[in-house]
Amino acid sequence: MTNLGLPDPEQLAARILRGERAAVASGLNLLDNRLPAARSRAVRLLACLSGERWLTAGHLIGVTGPPGAGKSSLVSAMIREWRLAGTTVGVLAVDPSSRPELGGGALLGDRIRIKTPAQDEGLFIRSLANRNQLGGVAGEVWPMSWLMLACFDIVVIETVGVGQTEIDIAEIGDTVCYVAQPASGDTIQYLKSGIIEIPDIFAVNKADLGAAARKTASEIGRSAPRQDRREGWDYPVCLLSATMNTGISEFHAHFDRHRRFLVAAGLLARQRSQHQSAWVLRLLKEEFGSFGLELVGGRAAIEKRLGEYRSSQFEEYERMREHILSRLLSVNQPTLSP
């Protein structure tokens, strides 16, 4: 295999920061690429993009909920509002893959729901398959969302979650929204499981269905305030309809309000840096195993190191990765080409 066709990360980063769509697309392709040569470049790309901005700028929004609840329709309704206000939006829409023994393919059907007026340069949608990774989110979503954050005001991540394992979304978004399907078993499950702790905003969609939607909203309303996750945040429950376009602007306003809350409480940067180090750890572990982690001092030491470089964790990641690689290479004779 040649490395031909893999882009130069420095140049790519500059183009991404200028908001060039072609560069954003190839950057996302690079972050998705698992070839060793691509990995090094992907890490370089992230390192080139990182900076203070990644802790303070933009807004990362996670939208989760059972299939068919209307996540994509709601995202679409919100995009309309953002675009009217001139805010640019990047979307990562994650759909489930079929099981590996069934070929592992996927139909990525969210674009059609998040319908876009032709030729809107301020909106960029990338669909992804979850590739059977636990938690409903592919590991690739993390770095992709940061890449998008480098050039869009708002980044929305839509993932299917049915209430059991989708902890990952909590480690991605600044603000997490759960979209409930009126009167569905999924929602009841959700309320029972501990995961009700995760969302910051609840949306009960399909208010046009009437009583069922109102009932679900009041059930959630009763459970949501019981949690005492964060002082000063009210965990709003919105009853709305994506198709009838009702309740959207109130719903929409909660996102900005939540972001302001995070900033005021000093949580935005803290949360992001936690999320980033969680991802770096996960990735180092996935690539090199526990043995690899030991080569740079073990989990606790890595966390500490990352904590010291809050605004440049990816540069630190790159250094650790290179260190591990060189240690490994000095043990085995080099077979990898950089």
Binding site: R21, A22, D32, G105, G109, I112, A118, R126
Partner: peptide, 25 residues
């Protein structure tokens, strides 16, 4: 057979198709 497939339905303009091809990689 294992592809990740993007299909957005009928009646799209050539621009929309090229844009989707790019965004979706």
């Amino acid at each position: 057979v294992g592809f990740e497939v993007v299909y957005d339905g009928i009646r799209l303009t050539p621009q929309q198709i090229a844009q989707a091809a790019q965004e979706e990689g």
